[in-house]
Computed example of a mutant assay.
Amino acid sequence: MIGLPAKERAMSETVAEVTIFERIGGAETVDRLVEAFYRRMDTELDARRIRLMHADDLSHTKAVLKRYLTEWLGGPKLYSVEKGHPRLRQRHMGFAIASPDAEAWMLCMRGAMAETIADEAVRSHLDDTLTKLAYWMRNQPDAPEGTQTWKP
């Protein structure tokens, strides 16, 4: 704000910043995003392994992801009031996660975002951020090229 004329500085200070949550369409879009994400996890062959990391009934998992994404995207604090700090990596330590799992997760998320988020700039930003997050969640070394570490 330094360097702006007083009138412009006052105007810019009164304009509220729009959150990504608001920009994508709020809770309705987050709901559709999570539903599309798990639908892809159920149907994408490359997502079989990560689907097996989840319960057969995804109701609870979907609800948790919806609360997490709502808060993470700048919406109401629905996740932290119930669960505290996300500690995502710690919460996922019980699952063996390697690069192919991060890639499968992103395959499902990219498809879900393409289906539900119209704003390309937001989609691109979320893709970058979520890709970093997905790869940060890895807790297993990657298998040597040409080997398979699990059986479908």
Rank of each mutant, 00 (worst) to 15 (best):
M1L: 04
I2P: 10
I2V: 07
G3E: 10
L4A: 11
K7G: 02
A10S: 12
A10G: 07
S12R: 13
S12K: 08
S12T: 09
T14R: 11
V15A: 09
A16V: 00
A16E: 04
T19H: 09
T19W: 05
F21I: 00
E22S: 14
E22Q: 05
R23I: 00
R23T: 02
I24P: 12
G25H: 15
G26Q: 13
G26E: 01
A27Y: 05
L33A: 14
V34P: 07
E35P: 04
A36W: 01
A36Y: 04
A36N: 04
F37K: 11
R39N: 06
M41E: 02
D42Y: 03
D42E: 05
E44T: 06
L45P: 14
R48M: 15
L52A: 10
M53I: 01
H54Y: 02
H54P: 09
A55Y: 05
A55P: 07
A55L: 03
D57L: 03
L58V: 04
L58H: 11
T61H: 13
T61L: 08
A63F: 00
A63K: 10
V64N: 06
V64H: 11
K66A: 02
L69K: 15
W72S: 01
W72T: 03
L73F: 09
G74L: 00
G74M: 04
G75F: 11
P76R: 13
E82H: 13
K83L: 03
G84E: 06
G84N: 06
H85C: 06
H85G: 04
L88K: 10
R89C: 04
Q90S: 08
Q90R: 08
G94D: 01
G94W: 14
A96K: 09
I97C: 15
A98E: 12
P100E: 01
D101Y: 10
D101S: 09
A102D: 04
A104W: 01
C108L: 01
A112H: 07
A112M: 07
M113D: 00
T116C: 00
I117G: 08
I117E: 09
A121I: 01
A121H: 13
V122W: 11
R123W: 00
R123M: 01
D127Y: 07
D128G: 15
T129C: 04
L130D: 02
L130G: 11
T131F: 08
T131V: 02
K132W: 03
Y135G: 06
W136F: 15
W136K: 15
M137W: 03
R138F: 13
N139K: 12
N139V: 01
P141H: 05
P141Q: 05
D142Y: 04
A143Y: 08
A143H: 07
P144D: 02
P144C: 05
E145N: 10
G146K: 14
G146S: 05
T149F: 15
T149R: 14
W150E: 15
P152E: 14
P152K: 15
P152F: 12
